[in-house]
Simulated assay, not measured.
Amino acid sequence: MTERIKTLVVDDESLARKGLSVRLEDFPEVQVLDACQSGRQALEAVKAHQPQLMFLDIQMPGMNGFEVLREIRQQQLPMPLVVFVTAYDQYAIKAFEVRAIDYLLKPVDHERLQKAIDRTMSTIEQQQQQQQQDKLINLVADATGEDCEDILKRLASGEDISGSRYPEHIAIKESGEITRVAINAIEWVDAAGDYMCIHAQNETHILRRTMKELEQELNPQRFQRIHRSAIVNMAHVEKLCSRQNGEYHLILRNGKQLKVSRSYKDRIKKLILNT
């Protein structure tokens, strides 16, 4: 950690409040923003400073430490990490039930205070790592169309998620030239014998590959089979229409109509309803 831990001290006893604030000056990683003498002051300080850590007395007149935490939750304020500081040990179990990271008995000695700070730093680092992981997962999900739960499973199995499993371009060799076609630009694909017709940005490219081989290179979160010989990019779908004869057709943004076979109809309807 490079930034100091933004901290509040809350205690109705003046000597205890000042004493702990002075003791915390021995820890350069801690920045005491305010010292509050009541639960009400603590709530205002949480609103104003959004601290990462709060040393909180339990027995205080008007609003005790547990009630302070309840009010923070009810007011939907950012919840700091909490170290309870009290002269009584009978609240220890309840303190950990509300997920306090430590419970210190007065008078607090330097070694126990050091352990509480170390535990706080470790918890903050874990939170930051989790936030970075969540950010990465969301970026991968946005880029690939994959479900976040699937990405988490891959991450848990040790798989690298920093890059997509699917290519961003496909190379198509035509008349002695190789054209790189962006995957996201592909609107639909249909089979023509032993070839694939790749339709992208008002152009049609001929690819010598089987439908099954091509399908393995396309992200299933974006590309869906709508017929035995057709795949469509769902991002280019405008609407799904039913005909009087019971057939369904997809209408693409460019006006193209594609027939949906009966075996794929229900899946396509579900995908459209859920997007």
Rank of each mutant, 00 (worst) to 15 (best):
A156Q: 10
L56E: 01
E67C: 06
G62R: 12
A45P: 08
C241E: 15
A45I: 11
K173F: 03
L271P: 05
N274D: 13
S122N: 10
I231M: 03
R262E: 14
E25D: 15
T210D: 09
F223W: 01
I251C: 09
M79K: 12
K106E: 01
L240N: 07
I272K: 05
E25P: 04
Q127P: 03
T179L: 09
K269Q: 15
N138H: 11
A143C: 06
I117W: 01
C197M: 12
I226R: 00
A200H: 04
K115H: 13
V68E: 03
V232G: 06
R228K: 13
V9T: 09
E168H: 06
D194S: 15
I272W: 12
Q114N: 09
H205F: 13
H110Y: 12
D142V: 05
L250W: 04
H205E: 08
Q76C: 09
D194Q: 15
A87R: 07
K6P: 01
L136Y: 00
L81F: 10
A92K: 02
E213H: 06
L43H: 07
K270D: 14
E111K: 13
V108H: 04
E44F: 11
E187H: 08
L104E: 06
A16D: 08
N245L: 12
E3L: 15
I170F: 02
E25A: 10
L207T: 04
Q130I: 06
G158V: 02
E149Y: 11
T144R: 02
T2N: 15
V46S: 05
A230C: 15
D26N: 15
S175Q: 15
A185M: 07
D11H: 08
E187I: 02
L218I: 08
T144H: 00
I72V: 11
T123I: 03
A87G: 08
A87H: 08
I5Y: 02
E247Q: 14
I93G: 07
L105G: 02
Q52A: 06
Q50K: 14
E168M: 06
R4K: 14
L240P: 01
V85C: 02
M211K: 05
R17K: 15
A156G: 05
G255T: 12
V140M: 02
E44G: 11
K265W: 09
E213K: 09
K153I: 09
F96M: 11
D109I: 06
A45V: 12
A95I: 02
L271C: 13
I161A: 03
T210W: 08
R267S: 13
E213T: 07
K239S: 15
G255A: 13
L105S: 03
A100G: 09
Y103V: 00
L8G: 02
L24I: 13
A35I: 04
M54H: 08
A100N: 07
L271F: 12
L139S: 04
D147W: 04
